[in-house]
């Protein structure tokens, strides 16, 4: 659990982060969402002390982050950066092994763990002997994630981790990311300016603006119960798409007459309405099911927007 209490940071007389408080619960993915310059990256970097807060407290599992040596603190927190931040003079193998080397793991353990992660992240073993500049952007980012995961630290901080990727690669990595078992029992704080990414990955979202948190909540809450016009306007452009995405089949189930749709197409209750519609729309034989789902979603939506 990460607790941020009334933390501020001032750069050149201007508050970059202005007295913010929030909490990331165990095993949840909390997204800090906002436009550039809103203070989200500064907030993230204060947690592993890449930037020192001017005031306020940050606690991890109830302990102040200043109680430990800064190097120890950082070794216990995985960090993924926008531009992978891999060492250009190290091979991929050496890059992944940086933290274990610092922790003085033995070679066998490093090798085993490296192979395990490569497999999970869909990287082939022959990248190991290559250098970062010989890899594609997507591969580099996967290596960056492997590097952050290797030491099994319970906390993962991610600073625009997929920001430099093209949309198709990004979509692939998103779906891999969500299904990665490694991440299920970690507390993750992810910074992004991409609204769709925030809704896709975040269990809770902190919407930030000008160094302050405007609203914190689940995607549904933030979409259907915006605190003010800023929040409403922030999602206006993607609104419909987001609504389809945040609604799961479980949500709309009660508005469907025939129970069979879920089982017939091998959906689960967790599948989003958007994904289900995508699948149904790819074949015109499914037009009936498609229309039933649309209708159910519309009924569900009416209740949300009261």
């Amino acid at each position: 659990m990460i607790t941020v209490e009334s933390v501020s940071k001032i750069f050149n007389g201007k508050p970059a982060v202005d007295n913010i408080s929030f909490q990331a619960n165990d095993k949840e993915i909390l997204v800090l969402l906002g436009t550039s310059g809103c203070g989200k990256t500064t907030t993230l970097k204060m947690i592993n002390r890449l930037i020192e807060a001017d005031s306020g407290n940050i606690l991890i599992d109830g302990k102040d982050i200043h109680d430990r040596k800064v190097e120890e603190l950082r070794m216990g927190i995985g960090f993924v950066m926008q531009h992978s931040g891999l060492f250009p003079h190290y091979t991929i193998k050496q890059n992944i092994a940086v933290v274990p080397e610092l922790l003085k793991w033995d070679k066998k353990k490093i090798k085993y763990r490296t192979e395990e992660l490569l497999h999970k992240l869909h990287l082939s073993e022959d990248v190991l002997s290559r250098f970062p500049n010989e890899l594609s952007g997507g591969q580099q980012q996967r290596v960056g994630i492997a590097r952050a995961l290797i030491a099994n630290s319970p906390i993962l901080l991610m600073d625009e981790p997929f920001g430099a990727l093209d949309n198709i690669t990004k979509a692939d990595i998103h779906s891999e990311f969500k299904s990665l078992e490694e991440l299920k029992n970690k507390t993750i704080i992810l910074v992004t300016h991409d609204v769709q990414e925030a809704f896709e990955l975040g269990q809770r979202i902190c919407l930030m603006d000008k160094g302050k948190i405007i609203q914190t909540g689940t995607p549904q809450e933030i979409l259907y119960r915006p605190k003010n016009d800023f929040v409403k306007d922030f999602f206006a452009e993607n609104r419909l798409l987001l609504e389809y995405k945040v609604a799961s089949l479980n949500n709309v189930k009660s508005f469907i007459d025939s129970e069979n749709i879920i089982n017939e197409f091998q959906f689960t209750g967790e599948t989003s309405v958007w994904n289900a519609l995508q699948k149904l729309s790819s074949d015109h034989k499914n037009t009936d099911a498609y229309e039933i789902l649309i209708k159910a979603f519309n009924d569900y939506r009416k209740l949300q927007i009261v």
């Binding site: 592993n48 190097e71 603190l73 070794m75 216990g76 940086v98 610092l102």
Partner: peptide, 18 residues
């Protein structure tokens, strides 16, 4: 040296000497 790389090194818990 690229500041991103330096930041990455710091974030992984390297001390000054390392």
């Amino acid at each position: 040296v690229n500041p991103t790389v330096i930041e990455a090194a710091k974030a992984m818990g390297m001390n000054r000497k390392q």
